[in-house]
Write a protein that binds this DNA or RNA. Structure first.
Lengths: 335, 335
DNA sequence: CTGAAAGCGCTTACAG
DNA sequence: CTGAAAGCGCTTACAG
């Protein structure tokens, strides 16, 4: 196992202990964040651990971070994995991926994850109360990436600025001269409500009277976006622009516009939200609010590592800024 | 660690050893595939290991499978991860993901992977000779998923029936009545050559004289597909159908057709290869050769596990069948 | 082919 | 707060 017949000494906790002039159990306590070590001793040991780049024997707790997906979806899961992988690699931590979603066998649960003894766990979108409790009991730091639901105040998360995104999308359409701007809202998740609130705020700021019949609520799929747009665009006083809650809905709008013979952006401007890989390949390329999944995932990983080190953290939750990506699906309305 | 104050005994190698009436070192040898154990003893110990569901302490060699990507791409990486995850979960094996590609730091190499002590390694598309050598030296079973290059005869792989796919795509166009069928070929990889050979075979079988000016070779991107299609479609004797080497190229063909005012499938039929997530959302939905990445990944994982158990394996390489997915981008040619 | 013995790195009570 | 001691599960020579 120790592959040095006489080369540099293997960096074991025994080696660190000797370097620091302390006993092996003391180093063990520091590594596991246990109490019963003076601040000075702890600091000295941590210094040596960093200096010699101590790594736990792979697989023991602390050497991996596990990403728990509810559902792994092609259009965005990879950005998250890549963001985590980037930061994990720098810290010489392995990245585990698991799926604890609808199509997992009933036997599968967070216990499997805990059994793998990851140093950190990252949840994508959802985390249940029992999961939070179990991870806390085992003292495994966890962070929620892009939370879909409400979270207790002490659960660390990394989200995105949904309100701001909805606001800037709407603002962009207003600046272009649009007044009849429809919004296709999503289900009752906080992130959908925030996007919609951004829309309403921008409309109010521009003194455009809100027309609630222009806001429809539906699911976040292409089919539902299509149905909603069909209805919206069949009205005599149809909107000149539609802001969709996500890109999939926006592609549904594309399809409805095409069927109705409405050109984009000539007769209808469309803005999406997410900026999934394919948004740039659409015809015309979709103007959308970029959700920085890669950066969110990197930040969440960093946060988990910081938490794991027991370092104080400025805030337990943070939101990474969206950025409006203007492409070809928006233009001034025909007057 | 052993969480049974008096419950069922923890399934350790000591427990297995006692059940089997052998010593601990013997069980250790069986687990690690070492020699020096009689066939009968080995069989008995393996039986008990399965019966009691022995799991190595997580993280020690054997409890994880690592997927090594050269480049993690949104349109297909997730299918591979999901395929591996499915099989791994059934075997209570963790899934590690890493990227050893162009944007990895120079320090990163297969040594990092080996340091994690995975039980198995799955390479996506590419594997280098040093990687093969190092893994062999460490006795870690590995399989290449969807190999892009040539592989030594003894390297296990799971690919797809590229020749067959190219053949069925072309055959479909011929059956529809097309005769001037162009092919946009890819770089000099075996899988591209196989797709093209399938095209030529189908053409020859149908007694259609090959027109080599109808075959252009370029890269596998949307932009290159666009450029190739533009050239092909600007000719006076333009083809009535185009078979592209992958879906990205096919989307480039869509764009070129749109610019040239050619309707699909009315004036031009298009067939792609891969069946990436978005092919079904295109306008019109793309007829393409489905590459069963999920199944390929599952099969590769199974193969790696079988190899790890030291069980004889029918063949060291296999190809999972493609299936032609007919959607809306193909129709009989206008006569 | 087999296993007693020594040893690995690490963790856990627990005595000071 | 600290560490000697016992112990964990596992592996590695090596003697029979």
């Amino acid at each position: 196992m120790t592959d040095n017949p006489s080369g540099p000494p293997a960096v074991t906790i025994a080696f660190i202990a000797e370097s620091a002039g302390v006993s092996i159990p003391t180093v063990s306590k520091v590594l596991n964040g246990r109490s019963g070590v003076s601040v000075e001793t702890r600091a000295r040991v941590e210094g040596l651990i960093n200096k010699y780049g101590y790594r736990r024997p792979s697989g023991s707790r602390g050497s991996t971070v596990e990403i728990v997906f509810r559902e792994m979806e092609g259009t965005w899961a990879v950005d998250i994995i890549r963001g985590v992988e980037r930061v994990a690699r720098q810290n010489r931590i392995g990245v585990l991926v698991s799926q604890l979603g609808p199509d997992s066998s009933p036997a599968t649960s967070i216990d499997e994850t805990i059994g793998r003894r990851p140093g950190f766990v990252l949840f994508v979108s959802e985390i249940s109360a029992p999961e939070q409790a179990k991870l806390k009991a085992k003292d495994i730091p966890f962070v929620v990436i892009n939370p879909a639901g409400e979270l207790p105040d002490d659960v660390p998360f990394v989200g995105t600025t949904n309100w701001r995104g909805g606001h800037s999308a709407t603002r962009h359409l207003l600046d272009l001269g649009h007044r009849r701007i429809a919004m296709i809202n999503g289900p009752d998740y906080p992130f959908c409500q925030a996007r919609m609130a951004g829309y309403f705020s921008a409309m109010a700021e521009a003194d455009v009277a809100a027309d609630s019949s222009l806001v429809v609520r539906t699911f976040l799929t292409r089919e539902h976006g299509y149905a909603a747009a069909l209805e919206l665009l069949s009205r005599p006083d149809r909107p000149t622009a539609i802001f969709a809650s996500n890109d999939m809905q926006a592609f549904g709008v594309y399809r409805a516009a095409r069927e109705l013979g409405l050109s984009i952006p000539g007769e209808l401007s469309v803005v999406g939200f997410d900026d999934i890989v394919v948004s740039d390949w659409a015809d015309p390329p979709l103007t959308t609010v970029h959700q920085p999944l890669f950066e969110m995932a990197s930040a969440a990983t960093d946060l988990a590592f910081t938490l794991g080190r027991g370092e104080p953290v400025r805030q337990v939750g943070l939101e990474i800024a969206t950025v409006l990506t203007i492409r070809k699906s928006t233009a001034p309305p025909r007057s």
